[in-house]
C-alpha cells in the first residue's frame, strides 16, 4: 500500500512513541515596527511570547485563534522561516540549530508546511511537475527518479499524473492547486506537516474533499499534523488535541473532547459560542464578547484577554496567569488557580 514512502527512506523514529516528535520551549518572536524620522524601532509587535508546545508522534494538534493571535507566526517559527528571538526546539530528541543537534536544513527535511493561499504558494512560471520536483532535486535526487516521485505524489493526492504534470497553476482550480501544495509538502517525505489555514480558502464542497484526503494521507504515510485554522468546526473534526491562542499566548490546551466539551477559559467559551448555530430556531441572541481583539502592539498588562473578559478583576491586570494544569486540560486563567486572588477562584 505504501509505495510512495518506503519506511526506510524516511527519517527514522529515534526516541520511540513516547518521545514528542517536536518540542518547542519558550519560543518568542517580536517584530519591530519602524517609525519616526530615522526609521528607528519605536514599537514591537509581540506576535509570539514565551510559547511552549509539544507535538506527539502520530497526533494532530489543532491550533485555533483569531487573526493576530500569532498562530501563523508559530508555524513559521517551527519550520524556521522565521528565526525565534528566544527559545529552543527539539525534534525527536535532537536539539535544532545547536551544537550536537541537527541543522535547520535537516529540520526542514522532516517538517514541511502547506500555506493558505494556494495560488501564491505555487510559482506561476513552473509546471506542476517542475514545482513538485524542485525540492527532491535540490536534495540531490536524479531527474528520472524525481520525475517518478512526482507521478507518485500526484497520484497520492488524487490528481491523474499524465493530465496534470505539464500544467501550470493558473490552469487548475483552487482545490486542485491545494492538492498540489500538499503533494509538494510530502515530496521530501516529512514526518510532521504544518497545515497553516490549508483549507480555509476553499469552497465548502471542495474543503470536504481535501479534508478526507488529509485524513487518508495521515493514516497511509504515518504523518503527524499541526493543523492551524480559525475554523473551530474543522479543527474539531481533525484534531486530537487543541491549543487555543490569544494575542501571542496559549490560553488553553487540552484534548479535543475537553476543549469542546468543557472549555475552561472564558475566551475559549466565547469562541465556541460565537459559532453560528445552524438552527434557525436557536439563533444566537447576544454576542458572547464585545469588541475586537486588541492590537498585538502593546498588549494589555497581566492577562491579555482581560479587556474583553466579562469576569476581569484587579488581579487580572496585575498578574499574568500561567498555563496551569486542571484535570483535563491546561488553562491560563486566574479563575482556575486556587488562591490566585480572583473572587471566582477556589480557596488555596
Amino acid at each position: 500500500m505504501d509505495a510512495l514512502v518506503p519506511r526506510q527512506d524516511r527519517a527514522k523514529d529515534r526516541g520511540g512513541p513516547a518521545q514528542p516528535l517536536l518540542l518547542a520551549e519558550g519560543l518568542r518572536k517580536h517584530f519591530p515596527v519602524m517609525g519616526g524620522l530615522l526609521g528607528r524601532t519605536t514599537k514591537v509587535v509581540r506576535a509570539v511570547d514565551d510559547l511552549s508546545l509539544s507535538v506527539a508522534k502520530g497526533e494532530t494538534l489543532g491550533v485555533v485563534g483569531e487573526s493576530g493571535c500569532g498562530k501563523s507566526t508559530v508555524a513559521r517559527l517551527l519550520i524556521r522561516l522565521l528565526k525565534p528571538d528566544k527559545g529552543t526546539m527539539v525534534l525527536d530528541g535532537d536539539p535544532v540549530d545547536e551544537p550536537h543537534g541537527i541543522t535547520v536544513a535537516e529540520l526542514r527535511r522532516q517538517v514541511q508546511m502547506v500555506f493558505q493561499d494556494s495560488y501564491a504558494s505555487l510559482n506561476p512560471r513552473l509546471t506542476i511537475a517542475e514545482t513538485l520536483a524542485f525540492a527532491p532535486k535540490a536534495h540531490g535526487l536524479p531527474a528520472s527518479e524525481a520525475r517518478e516521485r512526482v507521478r507518485d505524489l500526484l497520484a497520492k493526492v488524487g490528481l491523474e499524473p499524465d493530465t496534470y504534470m505539464e500544467r501550470y497553476p493558473h490552469e487548475l482550480s483552487g482545490g486542485q492547486r491545494q492538492r498540489v501544495n500538499i503533494a509538494r509538502a510530502l515530496a521530501l517525505r516529512p514526518r510532521l506537516v504544518i497545515l497553516d489555514e490549508a483549507v480555509s480558502a476553499l469552497d465548502k464542497s471542495v474543503e470536504a474533499q481535501v479534508l478526507n484526503m488529509l485524513v487518508d494521507l495521515k493514516d497511509e504515510l504515518g504523518l503527524t499534523y499541526l493543523f492551524i485554522s480559525h475554523d473551530l468546526n474543522v479543527v474539531q473534526y481533525l484534531s486530537d488535541r487543541v491549543l487555543v491562542m490569544y494575542l501571542g499566548k496559549i490560553v488553553e490546551l487540552g484534548s479535543v473532547e475537553a476543549i469542546y466539551g468543557n472549555p475552561q477559559h472564558p475566551y475559549t467559551r466565547a469562541l465556541l459560542s460565537a459559532r453560528p448555530s445552524m438552527d434557525p430556531r436557536k439563533r444566537t441572541k447576544e454576542a458572547p464578547i464585545q469588541g475586537d481583539p486588541p492590537n498585538p502592539i502593546d498588549p494589555p498588562s497581566g492577562c491579555r484577554f482581560r479587556t474583553r473578559c466579562p469576569f476581569a478583576e484587579d488581579v487580572c491586570a496585575r498578574l499574568e496567569p500561567q498555563l496551569a494544569d486542571t484535570r483535563a486540560q491546561a488553562v491560563a486563567c486566574h479563575m482556575r488557580v486556587a488562591g490566585s486572588g480572583h473572587s471566582k477562584a477556589a480557596a488555596p
Binding site: 482550480s173 482545490g175 486542485q176 465548502k204 464542497s205 471542495v206 474543503e207 470536504a208 474533499q209 479534508l211 478526507n212 485524513v215 475554523d231 473551530l232 468546526n233 474543522v234 474539531q236 473534526y237 479535543v256 469542546y260 445552524m278
Partner: peptide, 18 residues
C-alpha cells in the same frame, strides 16, 4: 459537506468534481 464538529471520525460527504 459543511464540517460540523460532531462529524469527528466520520468520512465527510464531499461533492465530487468542481
Amino acid at each position: 459537506s459543511t464540517v460540523q464538529g460532531s462529524m469527528r471520525g466520520q468520512r465527510l460527504e464531499a461533492i465530487p468534481g468542481a
